[in-house]
Design a protein around this nucleic acid. Structure first.
Lengths: 375, 375
DNA sequence: CTGTTAGCGCCTTCAC
DNA sequence: GTGAAGGCGCTAACAG
């Protein structure tokens, strides 16, 4: 079946060392020998076994990308738009592909609203499929297969993560800079949310806000929430009408709207704006509001965060904060490669700028003048 | 740094075999021993090295997904929608993730309009980055890292591919069933195109068609083209006004439109319909037509193939043929797993049904009665 | 139940 | 310029 270095060596009448040299284009081989070996390689269709290579040379030339994603299994908005992780993957791929390094990817999906299932104590029945196992176990197994790990979405900087980061180069994407061992690349959530709130207050005179939060485990969600509170505090007239805890999925947006509607006795009591921690939830919210007969933005403004492509196509088009997801992937990958090459590097944190994208769901009109809501 | 089986064995005062047994949850270990070993494992933070495991047990528990994709690098429609390969990946992931198997993915992007770069003879400078190397070399290297390979888009069944398929389980996604060694999962292109043409002719009385073809290397493109010719032949009044060779990217659609416009002296001479081999090109075409002041569908009908989500959001919404991309990925992965488990399996070819999706770019109106164009 | 012992396929000094 | 030989870390018989 699959040919080995030995087969080639024997066939070419040389030693395995020589074949190895030829395979790696090294110098000290006579042209004649090289030629002969190459012919045999071609004839036999020899391809070095990557596992053996990794083992002998102690590296795998593969980076891993893992993510936890909350999306509803089917019939959902999240099926349709281009989401966070896909965009990040594109960025990752674009820097790896010129090197010929593939990406090992594994995504854990959680059902909207549910938490990641855990085992009380993972050890029995180890033959069970991995999804039954512990989250951290899954991470470790991924880590064991790669030279470095990109971790996106939904991880908090626990001690276990730190432990992992101590063993293998790790870069957190959109994570919070909590670990001393792991680099971080994230969007500037604070500035983004700040710009957004400024816009809503200063431009639209809104004062009553309902916040739709992301899952508490997501550092991104926490940062945005904190930035929101902080921004609100800057405006004495502004107040928090209420808030819902979502899970970054469209369904959460819909659920939040039901809460909002229930909280407001009469339609007139609606908060001025529904500020969602990401676009998916905003999309779900708009959908739900419309089907409840509430007009957006006339009755209530709705905003998102991320700037998923789909948002521009909604009715009304979604006002949101642009996050450079593609670039997050690119930068994270670059940092990871650097760290793989030089593990001793000091920890780095990179904040990528966000940009307020004013469309219509906040109450602006297409023709409005400069949407300058930046500070 | 990273602990080995030996470290654990020594520390626990047992043999490596015992540790291995514990790690794999095997039976013949006394509870006491097991307990002790587990404690040591935990204390040392031991994680088995995957390369060593793959090597010893002769399998990697990873499947690969490779694709060649034609898309323009930036500022393009293809950045925005959820495209073929992303959808396929979701399907793949969804069947692998319960098993805990990750996916190794590598995509070769080609610039729109350009062919895949090749080397006359790949052997010098082996240290060069992979993207300089030969396409087939890239495939082989991917194959060396996985237990089985999913190959999507843009590959024709050459002898070299056959050679590869003989060494490692391969499933072709949306490929043509040309190889005796590789399974194939593909959409029923023939029926899809047939339905579409029937609709255009019977419902809209169109008789003059311009076809925008995909790249000749893509089996999918060839099948659709053949089906198109065949369908046209069924209608005596219908004729081919012209055709363009595209590369499945939006830019190709735009280019095709310029050809069409040039070919038609006056606006009145436009063909009745522009039938595109995929949605991306149709999207590019519609965009270009609009900017040229040609009305779709009033002046010319435009259709696509795939049913990318973005198509529904266009103005006008795109009439197209739905291809179950997600399911293609799922089915392909299932077949691959089966073949990995049992390499001797006979070759299988699966055709997944397509569905005509009638929207407005063909000339139908939202309120139109049953869009039944099926045969 | 537990330990011993060969490899798995390749890389890499170290001699020649 | 080329070869010999010892691992890399783990698994899987085969003995006890």
């Amino acid at each position: 079946m699959s040919r080995t270095l030995y087969d080639v060596a024997r066939e070419a009448g040389v030693s395995t060392a020589t074949v190895s040299r030829v395979v790696h284009g090294q110098d000290r081989v006579s042209p004649a020998t090289r030629q002969r070996v190459l012919e045999v390689i071609e004839a036999l269709g020899y391809v070095p076994d990557s596992a053996a290579q990794s083992m002998a040379r102690r590296r795998k030339e593969v980076v891993g990308l893992v993510a936890i994603e909350a999306r509803s299994p089917d019939t959902e908005v999240e099926q349709e738009g281009l989401l966070f992780i896909e965009e990040v993957l594109r960025g990752v791929e674009s820097v790896l592909s010129p090197l010929g390094w593939p990406v090992l990817i594994s995504v854990r999906r959680t059902v909207d609203g549910g938490a990641v299932p855990r085992q009380s104590d993972g050890q029995s029945h180890q033959r069970q499929p991995d999804n039954q196992g512990d989250l951290y176990q899954w991470l470790r197994r991924m880590a064991a297969k790669v030279d470095g790990l990109l971790i996106a979405e939904g991880f908090e900087p626990t001690g276990r993560l730190a432990e992992l980061a101590a063993r293998v180069p790790v870069v957190l994407i959109a994570g919070s800079p909590g670990l001393p061992q792991a680099d971080v690349v994230a969007a500037d959530n604070r500035a983004g949310v700040g710009d957004l709130i400024s816009h809503l207050v200063e431009r639209h005179g809104l004062t009553s806000f309902w916040y739709v939060d992301g899952p508490p485990e997501a550092p991104d969600a926490r940062e945005r929430r904190a930035a929101f509170d902080e921004a609100l505090a800057r405006y004495p007239g502004a107040r928090l009408a209420g808030c819902s805890e979502g899970r970054f999925a469209a369904l959460s947006g819909q659920a939040a709207v039901r809460e909002v509607l229930a909280a407001a006795g009469r339609p007139g009591d609606l908060p001025g704006a529904l500020v969602c921690a990401n676009d998916q939830m905003a999309i779900g919210a708009i959908r739900e509001l419309r089907s409840a007969g509430v007009r957006v933005p006339a009755d209530i403004a709705v905003t998102g965060f991320d700037d998923v492509y789909l948002g521009a196509l909604l009715t009304p088009p979604l006002t949101t904060v642009h996050q450079p997801m593609r670039r997050l992937g690119e930068r994270a990958t670059s940092l990871l490669l650097e760290r793989i090459a030089e593990p001793g590097l000091p920890r780095r944190v990179e904040r990528l700028p966000t940009r307020l994208v004013v469309r219509e769901s906040c109450g602006c009109h297409p023709g409005d003048a400069s949407p300058d809501g930046s500070r």
